[in-house]
Protein backbone atom coordinates (compact mmCIF):
# COMPACT_ATOMS: atom_id res chain seq x y z
CA UNK A 1 0.00 0.00 0.00
CA UNK A 2 1.07 3.54 -0.70
CA UNK A 3 1.96 5.75 2.29
CA UNK A 4 -0.83 8.22 2.87
CA UNK A 5 -1.04 10.70 5.73
CA UNK A 6 -3.37 13.17 7.35
CA UNK A 7 -1.67 16.53 6.86
CA UNK A 8 -4.34 19.02 7.93
CA UNK A 9 -7.40 19.01 10.14
CA UNK A 10 -9.98 21.60 11.13
CA UNK A 11 -13.15 21.21 13.13
CA UNK A 12 -15.98 23.03 14.79
CA UNK A 13 -18.44 21.56 17.27
CA UNK A 14 -21.01 23.45 19.30
CA UNK A 15 -24.17 22.46 21.11
CA UNK A 16 -26.12 24.36 18.47
CA UNK A 17 -25.09 26.20 15.33
CA UNK A 18 -28.25 27.89 14.19
CA UNK A 19 -27.11 31.25 12.87
CA UNK A 20 -25.13 29.80 9.99
CA UNK A 21 -26.31 27.27 7.42
CA UNK A 22 -24.20 24.16 6.87
CA UNK A 23 -22.30 25.65 3.95
CA UNK A 24 -21.80 28.93 5.80
CA UNK A 25 -20.09 27.29 8.75
CA UNK A 26 -18.19 24.78 6.62
CA UNK A 27 -16.52 27.30 4.30
CA UNK A 28 -14.21 28.75 6.98
CA UNK A 29 -13.27 25.23 8.07
CA UNK A 30 -12.53 24.21 4.49
CA UNK A 31 -10.31 27.21 3.96
CA UNK A 32 -8.57 26.76 7.30
CA UNK A 33 -7.50 23.26 6.29
CA UNK A 34 -6.48 24.33 2.78
CA UNK A 35 -4.50 27.28 4.12
CA UNK A 36 -2.71 25.05 6.63
CA UNK A 37 -1.08 23.18 3.74
CA UNK A 38 -1.13 26.02 1.20
CA UNK A 39 -3.29 24.14 -1.32
CA UNK A 40 -6.21 25.45 -3.35
CA UNK A 41 -9.27 23.39 -4.20
CA UNK A 42 -8.01 22.99 -7.75
CA UNK A 43 -4.82 21.42 -6.40
CA UNK A 44 -6.75 18.68 -4.58
CA UNK A 45 -6.62 15.42 -6.53
CA UNK A 46 -9.94 14.22 -5.18
CA UNK A 47 -12.67 15.46 -2.85
CA UNK A 48 -15.08 13.37 -0.82
CA UNK A 49 -17.69 14.34 1.75
CA UNK A 50 -20.16 12.74 4.14
CA UNK A 51 -23.55 13.96 5.37
CA UNK A 52 -27.14 12.83 5.86
CA UNK A 53 -30.36 14.03 4.27
CA UNK A 54 -32.41 12.79 7.20
CA UNK A 55 -30.42 14.77 9.68
CA UNK A 56 -30.82 17.95 7.67
CA UNK A 57 -34.47 17.37 6.81
CA UNK A 58 -33.69 18.04 3.14
CA UNK A 59 -33.15 15.84 0.13
CA UNK A 60 -29.80 16.51 -1.58
CA UNK A 61 -28.55 18.74 1.28
CA UNK A 62 -24.97 18.01 0.25
CA UNK A 63 -25.62 19.80 -3.05
CA UNK A 64 -25.74 23.07 -1.12
CA UNK A 65 -22.54 22.35 0.74
CA UNK A 66 -20.35 21.43 -2.21
CA UNK A 67 -20.47 25.10 -3.22
CA UNK A 68 -18.25 25.82 -0.23
CA UNK A 69 -15.34 23.97 -1.81
CA UNK A 70 -15.35 26.33 -4.79
CA UNK A 71 -16.03 23.66 -7.43
CA UNK A 72 -15.53 26.03 -10.37
CA UNK A 73 -13.84 24.77 -12.54
CA UNK A 74 -15.25 21.30 -11.80
CA UNK A 75 -13.57 18.95 -9.36
CA UNK A 76 -13.19 15.20 -9.11
CA UNK A 77 -15.60 14.51 -6.28
CA UNK A 78 -17.91 12.05 -4.57
CA UNK A 79 -20.17 11.92 -1.52
CA UNK A 80 -21.09 9.19 0.94
CA UNK A 81 -24.26 9.19 3.01
CA UNK A 82 -22.12 8.06 5.92
CA UNK A 83 -19.85 9.52 8.55
CA UNK A 84 -16.96 11.46 7.01
CA UNK A 85 -14.59 8.70 8.13
CA UNK A 86 -15.93 6.66 5.21
CA UNK A 87 -15.40 9.63 2.91
CA UNK A 88 -11.81 9.62 4.12
CA UNK A 89 -11.62 5.89 3.41
CA UNK A 90 -12.86 6.44 -0.15
CA UNK A 91 -10.28 9.20 -0.62
CA UNK A 92 -7.57 6.94 0.81
CA UNK A 93 -8.55 4.27 -1.74
CA UNK A 94 -8.35 6.86 -4.53
CA UNK A 95 -4.85 7.78 -3.38
CA UNK A 96 -3.90 4.09 -3.47
CA UNK A 97 -4.73 4.08 -7.18
CA UNK A 98 -1.59 6.13 -7.59
CA UNK A 99 -2.58 8.91 -9.97
CA UNK A 100 -3.25 11.64 -7.42
CA UNK A 101 -1.24 12.86 -4.43
CA UNK A 102 -3.74 14.87 -2.40
CA UNK A 103 -7.34 14.57 -1.31
CA UNK A 104 -9.81 16.79 0.49
CA UNK A 105 -12.35 15.30 2.90
CA UNK A 106 -15.13 16.91 4.87
CA UNK A 107 -18.31 16.06 6.67
CA UNK A 108 -20.83 17.84 8.80
CA UNK A 109 -24.10 17.43 10.59
CA UNK A 110 -26.63 19.45 12.51
CA UNK A 111 -28.65 17.45 14.99
CA UNK A 112 -30.19 20.45 16.73
CA UNK A 113 -32.98 21.05 14.17
CA UNK A 114 -34.54 17.69 15.00
CA UNK A 115 -34.47 15.02 17.66
CA UNK A 116 -31.50 12.84 16.80
CA UNK A 117 -32.44 9.95 19.08
CA UNK A 118 -35.83 9.71 17.34
CA UNK A 119 -34.52 10.33 13.83
CA UNK A 120 -32.17 7.38 14.34
CA UNK A 121 -35.18 5.07 14.84
CA UNK A 122 -35.65 5.35 11.06
CA UNK A 123 -32.36 3.45 10.62
CA UNK A 124 -33.90 0.33 12.10
CA UNK A 125 -35.59 -2.55 10.25
CA UNK A 126 -38.43 -0.71 8.46
CA UNK A 127 -41.04 -3.46 8.80
CA UNK A 128 -40.69 -4.76 12.35
CA UNK A 129 -38.73 -2.26 14.41
CA UNK A 130 -38.93 1.30 13.04
CA UNK A 131 -42.78 1.37 13.25
CA UNK A 132 -42.42 1.01 17.03
CA UNK A 133 -40.02 4.02 17.11
CA UNK A 134 -37.50 2.76 19.64
CA UNK A 135 -35.18 5.71 20.10
CA UNK A 136 -31.40 5.33 20.01
CA UNK A 137 -31.04 5.61 23.78
CA UNK A 138 -33.50 2.77 24.39
CA UNK A 139 -31.67 0.46 22.01
CA UNK A 140 -28.33 1.17 23.65
CA UNK A 141 -29.84 0.83 27.14
CA UNK A 142 -30.99 -2.70 26.34
CA UNK A 143 -27.49 -3.56 25.16
CA UNK A 144 -26.09 -1.96 28.32
CA UNK A 145 -28.27 -4.06 30.63
CA UNK A 146 -27.22 -7.18 28.78
CA UNK A 147 -23.57 -6.24 29.23
CA UNK A 148 -24.05 -5.59 32.94
CA UNK A 149 -25.95 -8.81 33.48
CA UNK A 150 -23.35 -10.78 31.57
CA UNK A 151 -20.71 -9.26 33.81
CA UNK A 152 -18.60 -7.77 31.01
CA UNK A 153 -18.75 -4.31 32.59
CA UNK A 154 -20.01 -2.75 35.83
CA UNK A 155 -21.99 0.42 36.40
CA UNK A 156 -18.94 1.84 38.19
CA UNK A 157 -16.78 1.13 35.13
CA UNK A 158 -19.30 2.91 32.93
CA UNK A 159 -19.23 5.88 35.32
CA UNK A 160 -15.44 5.87 35.20
CA UNK A 161 -15.58 6.11 31.40
CA UNK A 162 -18.07 8.98 31.58
CA UNK A 163 -16.07 10.79 34.26
CA UNK A 164 -12.83 10.51 32.28
CA UNK A 165 -14.55 11.80 29.14
CA UNK A 166 -15.58 14.91 31.04
CA UNK A 167 -12.12 15.36 32.54
CA UNK A 168 -10.44 15.10 29.14
CA UNK A 169 -13.03 17.31 27.48
CA UNK A 170 -12.26 20.11 29.93
CA UNK A 171 -9.15 20.95 27.89
CA UNK A 172 -10.83 20.53 24.49
CA UNK A 173 -12.28 23.79 23.18
CA UNK A 174 -14.44 21.82 20.72
CA UNK A 175 -16.13 19.67 23.35
CA UNK A 176 -19.58 20.65 24.57
CA UNK A 177 -19.84 18.60 27.76
CA UNK A 178 -16.85 19.75 29.76
CA UNK A 179 -18.02 20.09 33.37
CA UNK A 180 -16.04 17.64 35.51
CA UNK A 181 -17.94 15.05 37.49
CA UNK A 182 -16.56 12.39 39.77
CA UNK A 183 -17.42 8.72 39.43
CA UNK A 184 -19.52 8.87 42.58
CA UNK A 185 -21.37 11.95 41.36
CA UNK A 186 -22.20 10.14 38.14
CA UNK A 187 -23.30 7.01 40.00
CA UNK A 188 -25.62 9.28 42.02
CA UNK A 189 -27.37 10.48 38.82
CA UNK A 190 -30.88 9.17 38.22
CA UNK A 191 -31.11 6.82 35.27
CA UNK A 192 -31.89 8.52 31.98
CA UNK A 193 -32.75 5.24 30.32
CA UNK A 194 -31.96 2.48 32.78
CA UNK A 195 -29.25 1.35 33.21
CA UNK A 196 -27.75 4.35 31.39
CA UNK A 197 -27.31 7.60 33.29
CA UNK A 198 -27.26 11.05 31.69
CA UNK A 199 -23.47 11.10 31.74
CA UNK A 200 -23.37 7.80 29.85
CA UNK A 201 -25.19 9.38 26.90
CA UNK A 202 -23.62 11.43 24.12
CA UNK A 203 -23.78 15.21 24.26
CA UNK A 204 -25.29 16.04 20.87
CA UNK A 205 -23.59 18.79 18.92
CA UNK A 206 -23.68 20.51 15.56
CA UNK A 207 -20.56 20.92 13.52
CA UNK A 208 -18.19 19.56 10.96
CA UNK A 209 -14.63 18.71 10.16
CA UNK A 210 -12.18 18.85 7.29
CA UNK A 211 -9.14 16.68 6.64
CA UNK A 212 -6.49 16.90 3.93
CA UNK A 213 -4.74 13.69 2.90
CA UNK A 214 -1.47 13.51 1.03
CA UNK A 215 0.73 10.67 -0.20
CA UNK A 216 4.44 9.97 0.12
CA UNK A 217 6.76 12.96 -0.31
CA UNK A 218 3.85 15.28 -0.93
CA UNK A 219 2.79 14.68 2.67
CA UNK A 220 6.28 15.44 3.96
CA UNK A 221 6.35 18.60 1.89
CA UNK A 222 3.00 19.83 3.26
CA UNK A 223 3.39 18.91 6.91
CA UNK A 224 6.29 18.81 9.40
CA UNK A 225 5.06 15.61 10.98
CA UNK A 226 2.39 13.88 8.92
CA UNK A 227 0.16 11.34 10.64
CA UNK A 228 0.68 8.30 8.44
CA UNK A 229 -2.25 5.95 7.96
CA UNK A 230 -0.52 2.59 8.55
CA UNK A 231 -3.72 0.59 8.36
CA UNK A 232 -7.38 1.32 7.74
CA UNK A 233 -10.30 -1.06 7.46
CA UNK A 234 -14.02 -1.11 8.07
CA UNK A 235 -16.53 -3.91 8.69
CA UNK A 236 -20.19 -4.42 9.48
CA UNK A 237 -22.06 -6.59 11.93
CA UNK A 238 -25.57 -7.92 11.39
CA UNK A 239 -28.34 -5.37 11.76
CA UNK A 240 -30.84 -7.65 13.50
CA UNK A 241 -30.08 -7.08 17.17
CA UNK A 242 -31.47 -10.49 18.10
CA UNK A 243 -28.70 -12.36 16.27
CA UNK A 244 -25.81 -10.23 17.56
CA UNK A 245 -23.70 -10.64 20.67
CA UNK A 246 -24.12 -7.11 22.01
CA UNK A 247 -21.41 -7.52 24.62
CA UNK A 248 -18.75 -7.34 21.95
CA UNK A 249 -18.13 -6.01 18.43
CA UNK A 250 -17.04 -8.49 15.83
CA UNK A 251 -16.84 -5.76 13.19
CA UNK A 252 -14.48 -3.61 15.27
CA UNK A 253 -12.35 -6.63 16.15
CA UNK A 254 -11.90 -7.66 12.51
CA UNK A 255 -11.25 -4.11 11.35
CA UNK A 256 -8.67 -3.67 14.13
CA UNK A 257 -6.90 -6.86 13.11
CA UNK A 258 -6.82 -5.78 9.46
CA UNK A 259 -5.59 -2.31 10.39
CA UNK A 260 -2.84 -3.81 12.54
CA UNK A 261 -3.83 -2.25 15.86
CA UNK A 262 -2.14 -5.01 17.86
CA UNK A 263 1.19 -4.87 16.03
CA UNK A 264 2.72 -2.37 18.45
CA UNK A 265 1.96 -0.18 21.43
CA UNK A 266 -0.85 2.33 20.97
CA UNK A 267 -0.23 5.67 22.73
CA UNK A 268 -3.67 7.16 22.31
CA UNK A 269 -7.03 6.00 21.03
CA UNK A 270 -9.82 8.21 19.74
CA UNK A 271 -12.84 5.93 19.73
CA UNK A 272 -16.17 6.83 18.13
CA UNK A 273 -18.08 5.75 21.23
CA UNK A 274 -21.23 7.79 21.77
CA UNK A 275 -22.10 5.90 24.98
CA UNK A 276 -19.99 4.74 27.94
CA UNK A 277 -21.00 1.23 26.94
CA UNK A 278 -19.73 1.74 23.37
CA UNK A 279 -16.32 2.69 24.72
CA UNK A 280 -16.22 -0.40 26.91
CA UNK A 281 -17.04 -2.57 23.88
CA UNK A 282 -14.52 -0.89 21.59
CA UNK A 283 -11.66 -0.89 24.09
CA UNK A 284 -12.06 -4.63 24.45
CA UNK A 285 -12.59 -5.32 20.75
CA UNK A 286 -9.44 -3.40 19.87
CA UNK A 287 -7.46 -5.06 22.66
CA UNK A 288 -6.37 -1.73 24.13
CA UNK A 289 -4.55 -1.91 27.45
CA UNK A 290 -3.69 0.31 30.39
CA UNK A 291 -0.85 1.98 28.50
CA UNK A 292 -3.23 3.59 26.00
CA UNK A 293 -4.84 6.95 26.75
CA UNK A 294 -8.45 6.62 25.67
CA UNK A 295 -10.23 9.59 24.11
CA UNK A 296 -7.89 12.41 25.14
CA UNK A 297 -10.31 14.81 23.42
CA UNK A 298 -13.20 13.63 25.58
CA UNK A 299 -14.43 11.60 22.64
CA UNK A 300 -17.84 11.43 21.01
CA UNK A 301 -19.52 11.44 24.42
CA UNK A 302 -18.31 14.99 25.05
CA UNK A 303 -19.44 16.19 21.61
CA UNK A 304 -21.37 13.95 19.26
CA UNK A 305 -21.62 15.53 15.84
CA UNK A 306 -23.56 12.99 13.84
CA UNK A 307 -21.91 12.33 10.45
CA UNK A 308 -18.64 13.97 11.55
CA UNK A 309 -17.79 12.35 14.89
CA UNK A 310 -15.84 9.55 13.24
CA UNK A 311 -13.90 11.90 10.99
CA UNK A 312 -13.15 14.07 14.03
CA UNK A 313 -11.71 11.04 15.85
CA UNK A 314 -9.28 10.60 12.94
CA UNK A 315 -8.44 14.29 13.05
CA UNK A 316 -7.96 14.37 16.82
CA UNK A 317 -5.65 11.36 16.69
CA UNK A 318 -3.69 12.80 13.76
CA UNK A 319 -3.30 16.15 15.47
CA UNK A 320 -1.70 14.53 18.50
CA UNK A 321 0.77 12.74 16.26
CA UNK A 322 1.56 15.86 14.27
CA UNK A 323 2.11 17.80 17.50
CA UNK A 324 4.44 15.08 18.74
CA UNK A 325 2.18 14.13 21.67
CA UNK A 326 1.92 10.57 20.39
CA UNK A 327 3.78 8.26 18.04
CA UNK A 328 1.14 5.65 17.40
CA UNK A 329 -2.60 6.13 17.63
CA UNK A 330 -5.81 4.39 16.71
CA UNK A 331 -9.01 6.11 15.64
CA UNK A 332 -12.42 4.55 15.01
CA UNK A 333 -15.70 5.55 13.42
CA UNK A 334 -19.06 3.88 13.90
CA UNK A 335 -22.46 3.74 12.26
CA UNK A 336 -25.76 2.05 12.98
CA UNK A 337 -27.34 0.84 16.23
CA UNK A 338 -24.99 -0.54 18.90
CA UNK A 339 -21.83 0.07 16.86
CA UNK A 340 -23.10 -2.04 13.96
CA UNK A 341 -20.45 -0.76 11.59
CA UNK A 342 -16.90 0.17 12.55
CA UNK A 343 -13.94 1.72 10.79
CA UNK A 344 -10.53 1.45 12.40
CA UNK A 345 -7.38 3.34 11.41
CA UNK A 346 -3.87 3.16 12.81
CA UNK A 347 -1.87 6.37 12.58
CA UNK A 348 1.86 6.80 13.14
CA UNK A 349 4.42 9.55 13.20
CA UNK A 350 7.76 9.06 11.47
Amino acid sequence: MRDVAIVAFSQRQEAMINIESEVEFMVPLMNEAKDAVGLTQQEMGFTCSGSSDFLAGQAFSFVMTIDGTGPVPPISESHVEQDGAWALYEAWVKLQCGDIDTAFVYSYGKSSPGSLRDVLATQMDPYYVAPLWPDAFAIEAMAARHMLEQGVVSERQLAEIASRSRAHAASNPHAVRTAPKSVDEILAEDYAMAPLRPSDLPAASDGGAVIVLAADDKARELCDRPAWIRGIDHRSDAHTLGVRDLTTSMSARIAAEKAGVGNDKIDIAELHAPFSTSEAVLTKALGLGEDTVINPSGGAQAAHTMMASGLIRLGEAAQRISRGDADRAVATAASGPCLQQNLVAVLEGE
Binding site: S78, H79, E81, D233
Partner: peptide, 8 residues
Protein backbone atom coordinates in the same frame (compact mmCIF):
# COMPACT_ATOMS: atom_id res chain seq x y z
CA UNK B 1 -17.87 -9.24 8.91
CA UNK B 2 -17.31 -7.37 5.65
CA UNK B 3 -17.09 -3.76 4.48
CA UNK B 4 -20.11 -1.94 3.07
CA UNK B 5 -20.19 1.65 1.86
CA UNK B 6 -22.99 3.91 0.71
CA UNK B 7 -22.54 6.51 -2.01
CA UNK B 8 -24.99 9.35 -2.72
Amino acid sequence: GKPIMRVH
